[in-house]
């Protein structure tokens, strides 16, 4: 019963700032700026590889990131190839990233390609460093032959020569797979779009330069929108993010105070 009141409070704490935004500014952090500068620094025509390694559940956190980075890359006239170790990620890309490209006047097969998904995880990645075409079964997400997509001529395998940057939007282990099988052996720079939950797991690798940059969940997307100078849906969620965090902190403090004030005997003995 007590829990339901907490749930109501949480929903209120989110709805109020969504309806009445305060618009507190989001200050970009180093981890996000690094990605922005990386993409700014690439010569036009470079090939950027976006890995959409997340399921529908992570859309609220990772899709705003992917959209901002994808748009940024195309605006800078980079070529983008999309791939996914998740069967859902590539579909999400087709429904939401492709339209962005078209609205920017980009052409499929020339400016961007969606390679689709293959089962096998890390083995797929390893295979792509040896022979991307064979690993992909020679086709893209819609079954179009790769030989019919002009852009693919310059991407026979994943190596330093063909790929300038890999950005892995991931909700789990795929970052480690990219690191172990692709970027460490080949030396392609790797940046991550990460769910907030995994952000800390990945920080040690940011320090060592194994990940060049990490976007931290929805907040990372909001920072990227700020850098692009286009506040969007991630930015609009930041006030609600503030209030909900504040509520959690209050709940922790309140819970501890109640505990100290004699709730102790209600609690289970802990060892």
């Amino acid at each position: 019963m007590k829990n339901r009141w907490i749930y109501v409070l949480l929903v209120v704490a989110i709805i109020v700032p969504l309806a009445r935004p305060i618009g507190l500014p989001v200050n970009p952090t180093r981890e996000t700026e690094d990605l922005f500068e990386l993409i700014e620094g690439l010569p036009a025509g470079s090939l950027v590889y976006l890995a959409m390694d997340f399921d529908a559940g992570a859309i609220p956190e990772l899709l705003p990131q992917a959209e901002a980075v994808f748009a940024h890359a195309l605006l800078r006239d980079l070529k983008v190839v999309i791939h996914g170790l998740s069967d859902q990620g590539v579909l999400i890309a087709r429904d939401s990233l492709h339209p962005i490209a078209w609205s920017l006047g980009k052409e499929y097969g020339v400016d961007f390609v969606n390679l689709g998904f293959k089962p096998g995880g890390g083995i797929v990645l390893r295979g792509m460093t040896a022979d991307l075409w064979q690993t992909m079964g020679g086709v893209d997400i819609d079954g179009t032959r790769l030989s019919k997509l002009p852009m693919m001529e310059r991407l026979k395998r994943l190596d330093r020569k063909s790929v300038a940057l890999i950005v892995d939007f991931n909700s789990g282990g795929s970052a480690a797979a990219y690191r172990n099988y692709v970027t460490e052996p080949t030396g392609i720079p790797l940046a991550l779009g990460s769910c907030a939950v995994n952000f800390n797991v990945q920080m040690p690798f940011y320090r060592s330069g194994q990940y060049k940059a990490i976007l931290n969940g929805l907040r990372g997307a909001a920072e990227y929108e700020r850098l692009l100078n286009r506040p969007g849906k991630a930015t609009s969620a930041m006030d609600a993010q503030s209030t909900s965090h504040a509520l959690i902190i209050v709940l922790i403090i309140f819970g501890n105070v109640l505990h100290l004030l004699g709730g102790r005997r209600l609690g289970r003995e802990k060892r």
């Binding site: 949480l10 929903v11 989110i14 709805i15 969504l18 559940g57 992570a58 859309i59 609220p60 956190e61 769910c195 907030a196 939950v197 952000f199 800390n200 931290n216 969940g217 929805l218 907040r219 969620a237 609600a240 993010q241 909900s244 965090h245 959690i248």
Partner: peptide, 14 residues
């Protein structure tokens, strides 16, 4: 950061 992530998801649905 786990709290951050979960809240983002709920905000997205709301």
């Amino acid at each position: 950061t786990a709290v951050q992530g979960r809240m983002s998801l709920l905000i997205g649905r709301i």
